[in-house]
Design a protein around this nucleic acid. Structure first.
Lengths: 234, 234
DNA sequence: ATCTATAAATGACCGGAAGTCATTTTTCAA
DNA sequence: TTGAAAAATGACTTCCGGTCATTTATAGAT
């Protein structure tokens, strides 16, 4: 006998994903491995070999399940993004929360609970979309578009905004959140240097506090001047 | 005689940067070459060999002038950024422009005139800062901080905002503008596919129009609820 | 004019990562 | 038991950022 390795190295029996179900599971294992690594170091520092090793497969195997490295991480982003929308929608329907401040608190908590979502949103546009088959990006964008429309409509009602303002706010959030997240979390060595410099420590912002301020201003503006959304040119 | 190549290949006389002045010039040549390439294809598709070749030097030479690829492009970003601030400040002082809409028009034109600035802003946080000596990033951030503070103060007066709102608006702009720019200009193949899909064409936004809407809402909000900037927690 | 020390310029080279593919190995059905 | 199908593998290719021993233009000394 092979010295009884309990389901680890070298024992290749039963490790072959033969059914569609098993393949899904294998795919999830690779995604889970990538997620684990992402919680340890930034996206740019993670290689496909590492992801594969962490998932217990060879590098070539991970390319059976994802066409490119970017496609893998886009999938990860998609899952987290949709999870966030679920929480957002639930938050929106919770009758317990009735005031604007309470709603924003909930929103901020949804983000704070998903640091990896913020990280991935930050690199999405700049990196991920460049090396993913267009068809896959389209699937993702389509899911996103549906959620933006649906949740946007609910948001309008909830915050008493003008028609179209809800989904617009969500669209803007997709531009604003990654930017603020990146400002709030620069690379570790730079962050240390910025905090050490008295005239630059203001550049390291607090994500939640800053997003709260921005949202409050934005929503106040949308309420007082709903017409600004509709003039094509002033 | 060497068949009279007019200052091109093989003639290495006079091509050696010996004085500080000549070195500066050489440095600028490399930057100019990078800029030229950047106007042709996205940042991610430009290699150091190409930049060097376009500048008429060997790859190793470009590394005499810039420690890393990212440092080179950060320098490019810095120059364009400061140029934008110059235009911004001038705009702010121009007595001809008196109303908010006119000011925003000028602001949008400043951006529209600098497509490469938008492109570079988009990759700054996600890419550039990761492989640049901290000291160099600090220089850049310090310049930026000074301009934000100075122009922010002028902005407050001009738009009749509460103290701190001006520089805050500029800070936010640094998060918002790259995000909107990326949404407005996805990679070419994806862009084509998005425009072709009827349910997704709304994802390709118009940068200027969208930024105008966002700024109008934001400024309206800051004017009506200046106190939102000051509560640490609601 | 010639020689020499300096340092700018070069490009072959290195390390490492993404992605490929001929080969191996497992599985299942005949 | 066996053979076809296909999942898994990892050595290999390609390409890029970055290095450094070597080459060579230049300034100044003789």
């Amino acid at each position: 006998m092979t010295h009884g390795q309990q389901s680890s190295r070298q024992d290749r029996s039963g490790r072959r994903a033969v059914s569609a179900d098993l393949k899904d599971r294998r795919r999830s294992e690779i995604l889970a491995a990538a997620l684990r690594l992402l919680s340890e170091r930034p996206y740019a520092a993670i290689t496909m070999s590492e992801v594969a090793a962490a998932a217990g497969v060879a590098k070539g195997t991970s390319y059976l399940y994802f066409p490119t490295r970017e496609a893998l991480f886009l999938q990860l982003l998609a899952e987290h993004y949709l999870g966030w929308f679920d929480a957002f929608d639930a938050q929106l329907q919770a009758s317990a929360v009735t005031n604007l401040d309470g709603w924003i608190d909930g929103l901020l908590q949804d983000f704070a609970r998903r640091p990896l979502l913020l990280q991935l949103m930050g690199v999405l546009h700049a990196v991920l979309e460049h090396n993913v088959p267009v068809a896959e990006v389209l699937v993702f964008k389509r899911q996103l578009a549906q959620r933006v429309t649906a949740s946007g409509a609910a948001l309008e009602q909830r915050l008493q905004l003008s028609p179209g303002a809800g989904s617009r706010l969500l669209l803007w959030l997709q531009a604003i959140v990654p930017g603020l997240a990146q400002m709030a979390a620069p690379p570790a060595p730079l962050r240390a240097a910025l905090l050490a410099a008295p005239d630059l420590s203001g550049f390291v912002i607090d994500f939640s506090a800053e997003l709260r301020r921005l949202l409050l201003a934005l929503i106040a503006g949308l309420r007082t001047c709903p017409e600004t959304l509709h003039d094509p040119r002033a």
